Simulated scan of single mutants.
Amino acid sequence: MTRVLLFAPLYPPYSGGSPTFFSELANTLPDEYDVHILTAYHQDRPLFAKENGSHVYRIIPMKLDLPAPARMILEGGVAFVAAMLIGLFRRIDIAHIHSTSFSTPPIAISMMLLSVPVIYDCQDLAVRSWIATLGNPVAHFSVGKRVDEILVDAGVDEDSIIRTPITNPTYVSEYASRPVDSADDSFSVVFVGALRELKGVDILFNGFCEFAVEHPDATLTLVGDGPLREQLDDSIRNTEVGSRIELLGNVPHRKALSEIASADVLALLSKRETGPRVVFEAFAVGTPVVATRVGAVPDVLDDEETGLLIERSRESIIEALATLYEDPQQRQKMAENALDAKHGPTESELINAVERGYSRAESV
Rank of each mutant, 00 (worst) to 15 (best):
I317G: 05
I59F: 04
D217K: 15
P276W: 13
G144A: 11
E326M: 10
R71F: 02
I162G: 09
I131Y: 05
S160Y: 01
A26C: 04
L88F: 07
G77F: 01
T287V: 04
A82Y: 04
F191E: 07
E326F: 08
E305C: 04
D159V: 09
D184R: 12
A267Y: 00
R91N: 12
V118R: 13
D225Y: 06
R58C: 03
L47D: 10
P165G: 06
V265D: 05
R277V: 04
Y325I: 00
P328Q: 14
L222T: 04
A267K: 00
H140M: 05
L114W: 06
N206G: 12
N352P: 00
V223K: 11
E273R: 08
Y33E: 04
G344F: 02
E336I: 14
D65E: 14
I166W: 08
H96W: 12
A335D: 07
N238L: 11
K255F: 03
E246L: 12
L350V: 01
R58I: 01
G286W: 02
G17P: 11
F280S: 14
K271E: 15
A8E: 03
R3I: 03
Y120L: 08
A267G: 03
R3C: 10
D157C: 02
F211H: 08
D184W: 04
V143Y: 05
L269G: 03
T219L: 00
P46C: 07
P179I: 05
E347Y: 02
G87V: 06
L5R: 12
L198W: 00
Q123Y: 06
L198F: 01
F187C: 05
V143I: 13
V223P: 01
L228H: 02
T39R: 07
H140A: 07
V152A: 13
R163C: 02
E259N: 06
S115G: 07
Q231T: 14
R272W: 05
Y57W: 07
V364Y: 00
E174W: 14
T20Q: 11
D234T: 15
R360M: 09
G193R: 05
A341I: 00
K271P: 00
G53N: 08
D217M: 13
G87E: 07
P216A: 12
S363P: 05
S110V: 01
V354I: 14
N238K: 13
N136K: 11
Y358P: 08
S258M: 01
G155P: 00
A291M: 14
P137I: 03
V147F: 01
S115V: 04
S363W: 00
L220A: 11
L74G: 04
D234Q: 11
V289N: 02
K50S: 08
Y14E: 07
G242K: 12
L339H: 14
Y41F: 12
P30Y: 01
T274G: 03
